[in-house]
Structures are given as C-alpha cells and as structure tokens.
Design a protein around this nucleic acid. Structure first.
Lengths: 264, 264
DNA sequence: CGTTAATTTGAGACCATTCAATTTCGGTGG
DNA sequence: CCACCGAAATTGAATGGTCTCAAATTAACG
C-alpha cells in the first residue's frame, strides 16, 4: 500500500557509473546465457551484444530507474538486485505489476513507446546496464534474431502479467501469496539464486502486499498460517520451502506460464 | 465465474469457411487501417498484408479459437465480433485476462511460443482471419516493419493487462467496473462501434464479473448503483455513458495506457 | 546502542461472497 | 401474435474474507 517510499531522487543523483566488468563478468552475461538456450543466438549475435555500448550503473535502494509518463530514452538490463514495475492509483496506493530479476530486460516494452506507462523502482540496491534506445533499435534492425529474443522476452513478461491477473481475480489471500512465492522461487532458481530449497526473497511484507493486492496486515496474517501449516519458513528475507507440493496446491500453481524463465 | 460455457467443440465443427471478402472489404482492412497511422507501414508492406494467405472463418458464440496448452499452429486477426482470452483455476472459476475487438490480433503472443498459455473464446458470433504460423513468421522475416507492428500490438496488449492488474489489485468493485466500462467505451469507439455516447457492450454481467474478479451477483449490485447515480445506462447489451467525467472519476481512469488503441 | 523500519496483534466495520429463489428478458415455435 | 423456454438479471439474508486504525513488539542498520 505504501506511497511513502524513498523520496523521489533526480536521475543524476540516483545512480553511479561503475567501471565496466567490475566483477570480471560481462554485464550482460546472464542475459546472453539465457538467450543461448532458447532464442539460440548465433556466436556473432552474441559478439554484437558483448560489444554493445552500455553504462553500468548502481541504483540505490528505492531509487527510480524509469518514471511513469517520462519519455523513454534508454533501456535497462538488470545485472544484480531486484526491481519492480509499479503504478499508483488516485488514493495513493501502489500496485506492483511485475518483478524483474537479474538477466532480464527492465523496460523492453518501452522501446516502441514514446512514454513509459509505469515506473520502475529498485528494491534494495541493484546494478543496471543502461543502453541508449537508438543503440538497441539499431541492433535490432541489424540483427533480427536479437530483436526476436527481446520480443520473446516481452511476450513472456506478458504471460506472467496475465497469470497475475488470474491470481488477483480468482484466488483468495492464501492462494495469491502461495502462488507468488512459488513463482518467485522458480524464477530465482532459474537465475541461480536458490542453491537449495531456500532462497533470499528480497520483498518486504508490504511489497508482497503491493504485488498481490492485499494490505500488509493481511499478508502478515496469511504468512503466519502458511508457516504454522509447515509450508514455508520466512523471516529476514530468507524463504525456505518446506513443502513444495503443498504450497503449489494452496497457490493452484502451474509454472508453465513462465515458459523459458524457469529451468525445465 | 461460469465454467458452464458452451460445450467444447471440435475445431472442424466450430468454424465455417467463408468466401474471401464476402462483405466487399478485405478481412484485414481494420488492421491495416490501424497500422497506417502508427507503425506507418509502407504501401508495399500493406500490399504484402493484403495478399497474405488467410482463411476467413465464422466462429460460433461460445466456441474456442485457441485452447490453453494446445500447440500453436495459427494466428488469428479478428474481423468482427468480440473475443476473450481466459484461464481457468482449479476451482473451475474463470478469469478473463483480455478482450479483443475487431482489427486486433487474437494470439500474436503465441507466435513465438510452442504452446498457448490461455484459451481464446468467442463472445457472440465472430469472424476471424486465420493465418498459418509459418506464413506470418515468413512475412515478419521478409518485412521487418510488419514484425514491428505486431510487436507493438503485443506491447500495447501487455500494457492493458498491466492496467488490469492495477484494477483488480487496488480498486473496489465500483472502481473496477467503472474502469472497465471506460476502457471498453474508448476502445469500441476507436474501432467505430460508438457513433455517439452509446455503444453495444457485448458482455453479460457474468462475463463482466470474470473480467474484474467479482461475482455476477455483486456486478449486478454495482451496476445498479452506477445507474441510480446517473452515470450510465446499461441493458440488453446497450451501454450509454451519461456522465463520462463522473465515470472516469469513479474508475480512476486515465486512458494513456491504451496508447494507440484509442483515438487521441 | 539508539533510531527507524518492519512485523505483529486486536477488535470492529465493511465489502464481497454464497446460495437460493424469483423475476425479467430475448428468442423460438405454434 | 401469443405462449413458451432458457438464459440473464435481480433480490434477500447470512456468512466470511479483508480492511481499517491503532498500538505494541521486534528486527535492521549506521
């Protein structure tokens, strides 16, 4: 529900340019790894990606990467951290419409639009590879396979959003939260953030509430029931799945809508 | 909520092939008209579209055009009628995740996917231009601008879906229904189905309920309040907007998320 | 180790659901 | 043209899920 996030920060104040490849990996390494299996990019396509002009930036917790209504000049690929897309309603309440994990494009859908129609905000601290819009559009024009890969990414994002509509429309609080946890667990696993049955869930209860359309108070109570039923453990951002089949049952979860965002 | 739709019909039984251009217009006329303004296709691109191999089919009320989980072999463009995308949950309840109007692609997102992840069902009777998936993919490869047009369409669909998430997550019944009516009114207007402040709203109250995540009973009660407050008239599928600014206020409606799906 | 954010708890009010039963409506055949 | 039928819309009353509004407790962070 929160509208009281971090105060709006100016673009120049929100990020910090880092030396390229500060951690020894290419900033787009996760993205390219993802795209080798499914859209199956050629080696030369991958080279083109690798030599793309980009700025590696660090985004502070709560800072905005894109603001609703702004003209779209850049496109971002998430390197590390977690980022949410969100919209505000007139009462000031917030609805999160998507969660982005490392290796995903943060606002590919804005490439063909003049103005962003939602905001992108960083949970915790994150790193983003920022690429100028014309750079990406030229790349797509020159290399159709990369264009297809990006298109496929937006299609899978859309599929996830549709499942969220189902989640909010036809499941009660228990189901919604269980479903969200199942999705995030699989997606975190796909990007190597779940060594075992436990993972770091970077969302607060208030942010979970903004994902599933409930109040933080009610999210709290639902999580307690999931805990006492032995389905999960969750505290201090550490989520453990104690009973996967039970959780999928409560959440009516079938991961096929995630397509290539999970390991099959 | 209904699971009791028309009984499942076999593909061969559900449609009827019509002579091409039975009404004097090209089946893709609306689509091409839409794409001349915004993605601004060239004349040769439009020619390529006009000579595309397609089958014009009539779809009976309640029949399925795509079934969830099926392999995707075709893509459809809606010529006339109204069609919904939907998913079922384990309780048997239905959630409608999108509404498609004439001139829109019905399952463009499935072009890059192996299996459909939701079903497409015809409200009332409709006509669809069915195009084989390889035909479309070849066209996109040969004419990147058409690929972009289709991509933009999927992006706008995704934007609408995100607004639906907001609608279900952060608005009460009144707001949800008012918002849906505002959206449909503008979109129907964009395809020339609203000569004045009145239009044909082809959804039953039960179908409205499945769009906004409520029960038909509650939709009925909400509609009554909207009527008694002098905002709308709605009976027998005939919707009249009596007080547009009042309705947009109740629905917290800002149509920018519709992008090119409305006339500006 | 203090300060702020996040989580937890309680009780009452309210929105929406459930489950029928009833009425109206649109279309059909006599 | 009327009688009829099934689908859609409407109504009622009781139940239940979720919200609201605090206040208290716990955890996170510099």
């Amino acid at each position: 529900m929160s509208t009281r996030e971090q105060p709006y920060s100016q673009p120049q104040g929100r990020t910090k340019t880092l030396p390229d490849g500060a951690d020894g990996n290419h900033p787009l390494a996760l993205l390219m790894k993802r795209w080798t299996t499914r859209p199956s990019l050629s080696a030369s396509d991958r080279d083109a990606l690798a030599s793309l002009a980009l700025t590696r930036t660090r985004v502070q917790r709560g800072a905005y990467i894109v603001r609703e209504g702004e003209p779209v000049t850049h496109c971002g690929a998430l390197i590390s951290g977690v980022v949410v897309r969100q919209k505000l309603v007139s009462t000031g309440n917030r609805q999160i419409v998507a969660i982005h994990l490392p290796g995903e494009l943060v606002d590919a859908q804005n490439l063909l639009l003049d103005h962003a129609d939602d905001s992108v905000q960083s949970i915790g601290q994150s790193e983003v590879a920022v690429i100028a819009k014309p750079t990406i559009l030229d790349l797509i024009a020159a290399r159709p396979e990369i264009g297809r890969a990006i298109w496929l990414d937006t299609i899978i994002d859309a599929s996830i959003t549709r499942e969220w509509v189902v989640n909010m429309g036809r499941r009660d609080g228990r189901g919604r939260i269980a479903h969200l946890l199942c999705e995030l667990y699989l997606r975190l696993q796909a990007v190597g953030q779940c060594p075992s049955d436990r993972c770091i869930l970077p969302l607060s209860q208030e942010q979970i509430a903004d994902c599933v359309g409930l109040t933080p108070v009610h999210v709290n109570r639902v999580l307690q029931t999931l805990r006492t039923e032995g389905l999960i453990t969750l505290r201090a951002h550490r989520l453990t799945i104690l009973n996967w089949s039970g959780l999928t049952q409560v959440g009516d979860f079938d991961g096929r809508y995630l397509h290539d965002r999970i390991k099959v």
